[in-house]
Design a binder for these strands. Structure first.
Lengths: 221, 221
DNA sequence: CGGGTCATTTTTGAATGCAAAATCTCGTCC
DNA sequence: GGACGAGATTTTGCATTCAAAAATGACCCG
């Protein structure tokens, strides 16, 4: 109940709602990686016909969550370790930018949201909750840049990374390390030290990415 | 005939082709900023029915080229100076990343493409061609990062910026300055000086953005 | 019993149809 | 002359339908 943050609200056009719901289905891991998308079933479930559902599928495909195979239906985009590396690399660039901008632009309200998200993360409940709270925290920093173009791109990357949690279970050792890094990030943020914050965020992202990549490689081997 | 580079090829699924063609219509300035999208007309022109066209519209809306107004049709996304600032800011982060990565990862073939694109830009033909050649040049650098996630995001930003050329005619003074900056970029690239290249690309982008913003403000005033 | 072929069923992609909403038209009144 | 509003017209959004492609599986033959 604490963290409804990264989910889109029930608002907006019907089309947007369908896109959100469909994305949620993918992010909840209801459909295995590489699984066929059950169009008919989802239509039933959402109470709509195929036309609007397929519109949503095309959007999600453009966002990288789904793969469209001509005449052979859509599948949940399979996780490709090479692509995961690229995702984290790209996210690194955004994290740096977030650090530089958030330090300068965060309003008192932003700062409060960030502090709260960090505090919530400080008392880790179950591992499943950790991932969500962690994303809330980082997203709060992204919001503080007040750049919606950046935020949209960041959200997309975060969600694509979020899918990985079903194939690489969170590494407890890495989670512990994260807490220390988060503290450092907060120190830099509170001091509004832009370059320091940027560097810490970038490094935190890099370390997380490396841990994920190691696990990915380990599990495939 | 020289520069077919940034346009998607005639390949891919039918859906992708429709998206490309539609994007081309928008980028060619056939439809004024804020104009209603003539669904029926485009269906005729592309020889398709409304269903696949509307799928493409949703994708372009998600990419930021179109605005969907419930029950009131889609319009060409109006140019908002604030958003333009955000676009350039975001692009700045990517340019930096491109500099750092391209310097290290460019293959000899990449280098050759970059040199050619730069040479083509060196002998400026008409102003319309300049914008396209300029984008080719910068895109060649982005390609040299060998990161498709980055490239896709970069392409999207470039295209959104490209639309501006119909509202802010290229400033000759600024174009001249660009040549110098491009030379500097090439020097850094040939030396594979990652930080120098990153900084030059970032600055070049910033200066371009500032020039565009000045023109935008001037014209609205 | 395994492999391969052809008919059947299912699924996909796109055109068409239909109800609801918005827009336009034109006559009326102030 | 211009503002208003009822009715016709167009446009939108979605459901439905239809042809073509792929998946299934029944059958045959070696």
């Amino acid at each position: 109940m604490a963290a409804p943050a990264p989910n889109e609200a029930e608002t907006g056009t019907l089309h947007e709602q369908i896109v959100s719901k469909l994305r949620a289905v993918l992010l909840n891991g209801e459909l295995a990686d590489g699984a066929r998308i059950p169009e008919a079933q989802l239509c039933l479930r959402f109470g709509i016909s195929r036309t609007p559902l397929r519109e949503a599928l095309k959007v999600l495909a453009a966002e990288g969550f789904i793969e469209l195979r001509p005449n052979r239906g859509s599948i949940v985009a399979p996780i490709d370790p090479v692509e995961v590396g690229h995702l984290f690399e790209m996210k690194g660039a955004l994290e740096q930018m977030i650090g530089r901008l958030a330090a300068v632009r965060a309003t008192p309200e932003d700062a409060e949201r960030i502090e709260r998200a960090h505090a919530a993360l400080g008392r880790p409940a179950d591992p499943a909750a950790y991932t969500a709270l962690n994303q809330d925290f980082h997203r709060a920093l992204a919001v503080a840049t007040h750049n919606p173009v950046l935020l949209q791109s960041y959200d997309n990357l975060q969600k694509r990374v979020l899918r990985l949690r079903f194939v690489v279970n969170e590494n407890p050792q890495r989670v512990l390390e994260s807490f220390g890094e988060h503290e450092g990030i907060m120190v830099a943020f509170r001091a509004r030290a832009r370059l320091d914050l940027a560097e810490r965020l970038e490094e935190h992202n890099r370390l997380t990415g490396e841990a994920v990549m190691r696990t990915l490689k380990g599990e495939s081997a």
